[in-house]
């Protein structure tokens, strides 16, 4: 059995929460991924297994293969979240691009990348999001694309706003884009969040801080890249993604 931490009470202040985060981080090593049980992210308390995961090192495991997507699953407009309605959405227009590779640095070719996000005011087009910030009739906040032969993806969207959530008193999420990625194997599946450089909310966000290693956290933050900014049009960010997990080809190379 792994150690079971007591759930944190309601109504913690930001200072108390920051102290809880520091306490957990001090006791961890340089793990790549967040621990599934991370008491400062209070929703994790009842939603993570306490038994250790069972290792599977079977070269015949079906998970070493994975779903395929193709041109029929996306349209050319899907990568531009600013063109899904009659008018232009409000906010700061941005382009986000980068490469998706596996741990060996090989490009993940022609695979599906999904992105979803809040609007410029920090509100999602989801009826359970009742943050009293305006919805934007010209912005849904969902896009898809396929990577190219170099593993590159690219989206045009607007920069999302920060928003409050109820994890503790005065809890605010830094602006972020949600990403969903497929590799060549089901084991390489990844859902994560991309953040924007220099956000003052980083230190106060238990979701980002759940990645306890500072170097690992830094890999969730995109770089502003002036060369990607388009004159009179948009600001450019670069964010490369490395998928974890083995694939069938890795096993073959090991033999």
């Amino acid at each position: 059995m792994t150690h079971v931490a007591a759930p944190l009470p309601d109504g913690l202040s930001q200072e108390q929460m920051d102290a809880e985060v520091a306490k957990v981080q001090a006791g961890t090593d340089g793990a790549v991924h967040p621990p599934r049980g991370f008491p400062p992210y209070r929703s994790s308390t009842l939603r993570h297994p306490r038994q250790p995961l069972i290792p599977v090192r079977d070269p015949e495991a079906v998970e070493l293969s994975g779903p395929a997507f193709g041109l029929t699953d996306v349209t050319a407009l899907d990568r531009d979240l600013t063109r899904q309605h009659a008018g232009e959405p409000l906010g700061e227009r941005i382009t986000v691009t980068g490469r998706v590779t596996d741990r060996q640095g090989r490009p993940i070719r022609r695979q599906l990348v999904e992105l979803w996000q809040a609007n410029a005011s920090g509100r999602y087009a989801h009826q359970l999001d009742q943050h009293p910030a305006p919805l934007d009739p010209n912005f849904t906040g969902f896009g898809r694309c396929l990577t190219d032969d170099e593993g590159r993806y690219s989206f045009t969207t607007i920069k999302p706003g920060a928003y409050p959530w109820r994890n503790h008193v005065n809890a605010w999420r830094p602006a972020h884009l949600h990403f969903s990625l497929f590799g060549t194997a089901f084991t390489q599946r990844l859902v994560t969040q991309m953040y924007f450089p220099g956000d003052p909310l980083f230190a106060h966000d238990p979701v980002l801080q759940s990645v306890t290693d500072p170097a690992a956290r830094a890999r969730l933050v995109a770089a502003y890249d002036h060369g990607l900014s388009v004159p009179e049009w948009s600001l450019g960010y670069r964010w490369d993604i490395v998928l974890d997990g083995p694939s069938a080809t890795l096993f073959e190379e090991d033999r």
Binding site: V32, H33, P34, Y41, S43, S44, T101, D102, R103, Q104, G105, H178, L190, V191, T192, Q193, V207, L208, S210, V211, A215, A216, R217, R219, L220, I241, V242, L243, D244
Partner: peptide, 8 residues
């Protein structure tokens, strides 16, 4: 390469 961390 070091993998990109997961988030909820």
């Amino acid at each position: 390469l070091v993998p990109t961390p997961s988030q909820t």
